[in-house]
Amino acid sequence: MTRSQPALELVDVEKGYQEGGRRHTVLSELNLRLEPGDFIALLGPSGSGKSTLLNLISGIDGPDRGEIRVAGVDLHGLSERDRTLFRRDHVGFVFQFFNLIPTLTVEENLLLPLELAGRTRDEDRERVRGLLGRVGLEDRAGAWPDRLSGGEQQRVAVARSLAHQPSLVLADEPTGNLDQATGTWVLDLLEELVRGSGTTMVMVTHSENAAARADRIYDLNAGRLELREPRTV
């Protein structure tokens, strides 16, 4: 990827839902451009469309209008299956509720994205072990997720989001379900890993403190994205 090709580009994106007989617009005329390695935070009240935006960026959902390009690829131009495969290879997720697979061990949870992408070489496994070490859970590799604390589960989720070396990480309120101290610790880790690998990250959060870590903060209000001036951070 070169500087001339943005990591993420949103052009005049619009998205709405039909509610009974009325159409409810969630996002309108959204424009955004992120370069590789950028880390941005999205702030906004509940129902402002933050999660919807993440779903659009990941290709889980499609826009009504506009274009979404990830690493130069127009997601809307892909079939549902190709969008899934693209997501598998290029996007990492961190969810508010961790969403670890309860029937896979910690290590297997990390290996899952790699296996889905058909990458099961020894060096991939080595990297997973290294990642577990980086999040401080190398001794819990064989543990079941429900035996971990919330903070530990989110650390596994952070490691999983980066296991297959995506170009883009989408974090949906990654600390929303954690106490402040644990949340801070997890954010430190996430930031360190993302910045260390040069990955682009979009983080949705309610927390001003969490947002403050980002390179830029965007407010999502009434379906529009507004870049916050640096002094207000």
């Binding site: 889980i60 495969l85 997501r87 969810f95 994205p113």
Partner: peptide, 8 residues
């Protein structure tokens, strides 16, 4: 989650 992780 699996769908988000890229399972078709």
């Amino acid at each position: 989650t699996l769908r988000a992780l890229g399972v078709t």
